[in-house]
Design a protein around this nucleic acid. Structure first.
Lengths: 142, 142
DNA sequence: TTGGCTGCAAATATTTTGCACTGGC
DNA sequence: GCCAGTGCAAAATATTTGCAGCCAA
C-alpha cells in the first residue's frame, strides 16, 4: 500500500470525511518529493477542481499535520513548504535561486540530537536542518 | 575592542550615520546572548528612548544584516530572532515552551556541510540547525 | 546645509478564522 | 438529515515601504 492510500485510510479510520478536495491535496502531497507550498498545491488543484479554495488547502494541511503525517518547513519570507512523504525530522537541501528543496542522504544527524540531549538537559523532540546553496542546474544557468 | 564597538566602527567606516536609536539597538543585539526578536528589542529600547519606532528597529536590523553582522533566525508563526554576537551558521537549541534560544557547544556540524557538498554538487553557503525541545527549567515547572 | 534617518501610517504577504451553505455518509 | 467540510471574506500577524520632517556630519 502506498502512502496516498495509507493517508486516505487513516482519515477514514478517524472518521474524517473523504472529499474530492482532500483526495486531491493528499495526492499532490504524496505523489512527488517536491515539497510544495500551499500555493503550489492550490495551483495544481485548480486545474482539476477549479472551485477549490485556499482555506481548504490550509485546513487540510492542518488536519494532516495534527495526525503527524506531514512535515511543515516554516519560512518567514517565503511560504511554508510541506513534505507529505517523510513526516519526520530530516535534513533538507534548499536552492536559494530556484527554491527547489531536496532530501539528501545523510544519516549522521540523529547522532547530533543525542549529543545535544546529553550535554544540555533539554528534552529534544525534533530538529530542523537546512542547507542553503545553489543547485547544480542553477550554477550552470548563470 | 568588544563587538559593540566593532559594529559602531563598521557603520562609521561605511559612512552610515550614528544615531542614538542605532546605538541602542546595537547595544541590545550585542550585549546578551538572548537572541531577541524585533519586538523584544523595541520593548527594551522604549524604556530609554520612548519615541523609537518599530520601523527603525527593522531598518537597522536590515542594515546590519546587509553587512553580514547579524544572523536572522526566521520563523513562520513566531517572530524572527536575531543573533548579533555570532553572525555565522551555528546550531540553536529552542525551548518550545518559554521560547528561549541557546547556543549549544557542538562542533560536528561543519563536517556535515562538507559531506553535503561532496554528495550533491550543491554549492552550500550556509546552513541552519535548530533543535526543538523543553529546557530543564520548563521541565520542572509542570 | 543636506540627504540619510526616523516615525507614523499604509501596504504587503501569508496564514487563520467566522460563518452560511453544501454534500459525504 | 445531520453536521463536518467548503468557500468566501474578513481578521490576524509580522514585516516592509512611502513620505514628510528632522538631525548627524
Amino acid at each position: 500500500m502506498d502512502r496516498y492510500d495509507y493517508l486516505v485510510n487513516r482519515l477514514k479510520e478517524l472518521n474524517h470525511r473523504i472529499t474530492p478536495q482532500r483526495l486531491a491535496i493528499l495526492k499532490i502531497l504524496t505523489s512527488s518529493d517536491s515539497h510544495p507550498s500551499a500555493e503550489m498545491i492550490y495551483d495544481q488543484i485548480k486545474a482539476e477542481f477549479p472551485f477549490t479554495s485556499f482555506a481548504t488547502v490550509y485546513k487540510t494541511i492542518a488536519l494532516i499535520k495534527e495526525l503527524g503525517e506531514v512535515l511543515e518547513l516554516e519560512f518567514s519570507n517565503d511560504s511554508n513548504r510541506y513534505d507529505g512523504r517523510r513526516p519526520y525530522s530530516h535534513p533538507h537541501l534548499i536552492c536559494t535561486s530556484c527554491k527547489k528543496i531536496l532530501d539528501p542522504d545523510l544519516d549522521s544527524v540523529n547522532h547530533l540530537q543525542k549529543e545535544i540531549v546529553k550535554e544540555t538537559g533539554f528534552t529534544v523532540t525534533n530538529h530542523r536542518l537546512d542547507f542553503f546553496g545553489i543547485c547544480p542546474e542553477c550554477q550552470k544557468n548563470r
